[in-house]
Every structure is written in structure tokens, then in C-alpha cells.
Nucleic acid binder design. Structure first.
Lengths: 117, 117
DNA sequence: CCTTTTACTTGCAAAACGCAAGCTTACTGC
DNA sequence: GCAGTAAGCTTGCGTTTTGCAAGTAAAAGG
């Protein structure tokens, strides 16, 4: 997978979209916000992200400092992905998107039980 | 250009992204929020959207009721695209994205002079 | 051992994108 | 009234990104 990521303009909207503006990234962020942390957990989300796409997006997020990967050591035997402070600050964006969808797209259900923090 | 648009899940985040979750749509929305309304005006934005992509996105937005196209009549001799109330309600999402970019991506400049309403 | 589970990688076809050209319908100027 | 220009697209085509299935490697469990 490629990782070009050169900015199209200095506009903050454009730059943010270069980072998270694709079909999958915000869904991974959503899952992380909900407390999911393992590769398989993201895979099991109802949208059905392909494993190659997921691996690519997680790597991108780690590279840009939105997510950190805690390799298996100490207690947990499994890799764990977690949002950094920078990643958590996307909460406002995620909430705005979720709120808009609930208000404007029929048939959407708020199954998100986001944990605070 | 294709227009599949089948929802991946009933999640409001997922459904919203199916609608506006690509590299270009929110930039068109941004331009509309700023008062741009003509095809060429969107073309002239610094990100340099291709005309076929722009035509596709505008058509999608019209189909989904976020934008309305006022064909040339009366005074104006040129086509005009304008946000509907539904489209304008994306303001919160756009603002959240812009705000996050300004706070978290270095070198971004707020050149947006959004008009209220 | 043998099987599962997790976390990926690889190959390949299909879809989306990006670029340059071309095309059509006004107007504009002379 | 005919050439030139601008707006708003469409078309072709090569490149990039996706999506799907399969395969691989390491660790854990029985």
C-alpha cells in the first residue's frame, strides 16, 4: 500500500481530510473511541473492513501520532492499539459526524456507547 | 463515474461517511459555505479538483439533497449551486474538522472567511 | 503435536482517480 | 454574423487505490 500524504493546500480542512478523509479511517477511530483495541475487534465491526486496508490505516494513524501500538508484553499477550491525546481530540469531529447522521439519515441507529475520556 | 452508495451498516458515522467521506466532498461543501457557487469557482480552489470529479460530487450532493442547482435563468446567466438547509447543517462537521486541523497540523492557515447562515 | 487465534502479507481483479482533450452552449467584440 | 472566449461538462485512458480470497508466521491451548 502506498503512503503519499502530501498536502494539497495549507487549508486546515484539506489537511485534515488528507489524514482522515477516507471511507475507513474514521470508523477505526470510532472503534477506538468505543474501547476496541485489537486488530480482530476492528475486523469484526459490521462494516467489514478488509485486513489489508485495516493494517494500512492503523499504520498511517500510528505514523501520524494519532494512535499508539503497544506490542504484546507484560500482562497482555496481544497487540493493543490505543488513541493518543491527539487521536482522542478527534472526538469532536466524530461526535459532529454521528450527530449529523442521526439527524439527517433515516434508519441510522446510535449503537455507539462511547466511553468518556 | 459510479454511484453505488449502499450503506455498509446502520451506524450514523458509517452512513455519513458513505455520503461525504471521501477526499473531495467536504472541500466542495467548504467552498459552498464560503459563498462560492459556480463550477469554475470550485475548480479554482487551491487543491485543484479535476472537473470530472467535481461534476460527480456536485451531482451526488444534489441527488442526496445537500445541494440544489439553480440553472441559469432570470438575472444570472450562469448555473449556481447552493447548499440546502440539510447541507448547511454540515456546518458543525466542517467547523470541527477545521478546528482540529488548526490545532493539530502545523502549517495550516485559516483562510476560510465563512459567511454565517 | 495439532489446532486455534491473532495479526498480518500477497496476488490479482475491479473500481476510483487524475490528467488532458474535446464538446456544447451562451455571450462579446468587431 | 462570425471568430473568440468562458462556463460547464463529458470522454478516453493510464495510474492508483480498493476489495476479496488465500496464505503465512508466531503464540497459545489442548
Amino acid at each position: 500500500m502506498t503512503r503519499p500524504s502530501k498536502r494539497r493546500s495549507p487549508c486546515p480542512v484539506s489537511c485534515t481530510l488528507d489524514l482522515i478523509g477516507d471511507k475507513w479511517t474514521m470508523l477505526v477511530i470510532r472503534d477506538l473511541m468505543c474501547g476496541k483495541s485489537q486488530f480482530v475487534e476492528f475486523c469484526r465491526s459490521p462494516e467489514g473492513i478488509a485486513t489489508n486496508i485495516l493494517a494500512d490505516r492503523l499504520q498511517r494513524l500510528v505514523e501520524h501520532g494519532l494512535v499508539e501500538k503497544a506490542a504484546s508484553d507484560e500482562e497482555s499477550r496481544r497487540d493493543r492499539y490505543r488513541l493518543t491525546a491527539k487521536g482522542k481530540s478527534l472526538r469532536a469531529v466524530l461526535d459532529a459526524i454521528a450527530h449529523w447522521g442521526l439527524a439527517n439519515i433515516e434508519g441510522t441507529e446510535a449503537r455507539l456507547k462511547p466511553k468518556e475520556g
